[in-house]
Simulated scan of single mutants.
Amino acid sequence: MSSNVISGYALDSDISSTARELYVLLAIADGIAPDPADPALSELLAFGLITPHPDSPTDGRYLVLNPVHAATRRQAELYRAARDAISAAEALPDTLRDLSISYRSTERPRVGAVEYLEGTQAINARVSEIIADATQELLTSQPHGPRPRARLDISRHRDLDAIRRGVSMRTLYRATARADETTAYWTAQMTAAGGHVRTLDGAFARSIVVDRRWAIIDDPASPPDELRAVFVEDVAVAGYVAGQFDRDWAAAMPWTGGKLRTSERAMSDLQISVCQLLAAGHDQRQIARELNVSHRTVTHQIAQIKEISGAGSIFQLAMWWERRGS
């Protein structure tokens, strides 16, 4: 049996061939198990394919249950576990915030510090740590076109957290990023939260400036196939890089991620309520009762939302709503 564990749930996605054969035997033998100690019985019980017979629960006789119903129950468990895992991931920065404060309080203040880091994981971790300390301003230049979805997901939570703390955020993209739907989605979220995004034709340098105290730039000495960054904690250097950013910003065009926001505006209040309840774990009948509409209405609204979101299933639709940050 292939198995995984998410947020404390044991998620069995298949059953063994031995358990499958035993299921067929039980169905033929009116639920009487050939061997009451067979481990495959526990597997079938855990999957919800059989249950002890109510008239003889201790003598090795079982009721054989409909596999379709068992699959539906297990599917609901998987959906709930996936949503729990996403919620836990979203909450991680807040759950460790007190430890981060304690850690930072033990650090000695540094003046003119320079760090060289290599690799996406190490660089992103250090950037997130510095931005978590931001109190005033965050400036980001991204000259290499659209960023991969994984990197945008990392920066989305980090940057939204900074904006909600009152940090002013400005991001500069190359004009080609406007054609990328993933970047448009990220931009729509940032601007809706109070951030500012612009795009610029032509070349400009990649950089991050935090509170005009930290400047993070590409290492000019790194080979073309390696990602290295220089972290400089110096107000003079950070001020110089911020000045370059301000000049590029003045020549750039504002962008609010309009491609995505158009589709979002197409959603009705009812569709938004349906998405919220789906993301909260309600099934379609529960949503119908909660919103005081018919089950058919809910089904119709979900079909329309799938067209807007591009989701192919209820689960994908719920995940799409979770990812959009609502």
Rank of each mutant, 00 (worst) to 15 (best):
D180Y: 06
I123K: 14
D153A: 12
G166K: 14
D180K: 07
A162Q: 01
A203D: 10
A188N: 07
D84V: 08
D84E: 12
T171E: 09
S102P: 02
Q189G: 03
A85E: 10
I208G: 04
Q189I: 03
R147C: 07
R170I: 00
V127D: 11
R74G: 11
A188C: 06
I154V: 14
I154A: 10
R126V: 08
R158C: 10
D211P: 04
A125Q: 15
L172T: 06
M169A: 13
Q75N: 11
I163M: 02
T176P: 04
R110I: 12
H144M: 02
R213T: 03
L78F: 13
A122K: 13
A91E: 12
A188P: 00
V167T: 12
L152F: 09
M190N: 00
V127H: 07
A205E: 07
T176W: 02
S207L: 06
A193Q: 01
Q121H: 10
P146Y: 06
A113N: 09
R156P: 01
I163P: 06
R178L: 15
T120R: 14
A113W: 15
S168W: 01
R212K: 05
I123Q: 08
A150F: 09
D161W: 05
R206E: 12
D201W: 07
A177I: 11
Y173I: 06
G195D: 05
I208T: 13
R149I: 12
A188T: 09
I163A: 02
G202R: 03
R108T: 15
L117V: 08
V167A: 10
T135G: 11
L96H: 04
S141M: 06
L78P: 00
L78E: 12
D94R: 08
A192C: 02
L117F: 07
A85S: 15
G145L: 06
A192K: 04
G195F: 03
R104Q: 12
L152T: 04
D201L: 01
P93V: 03
R73I: 10
R97H: 03
P146N: 09
Q189N: 03
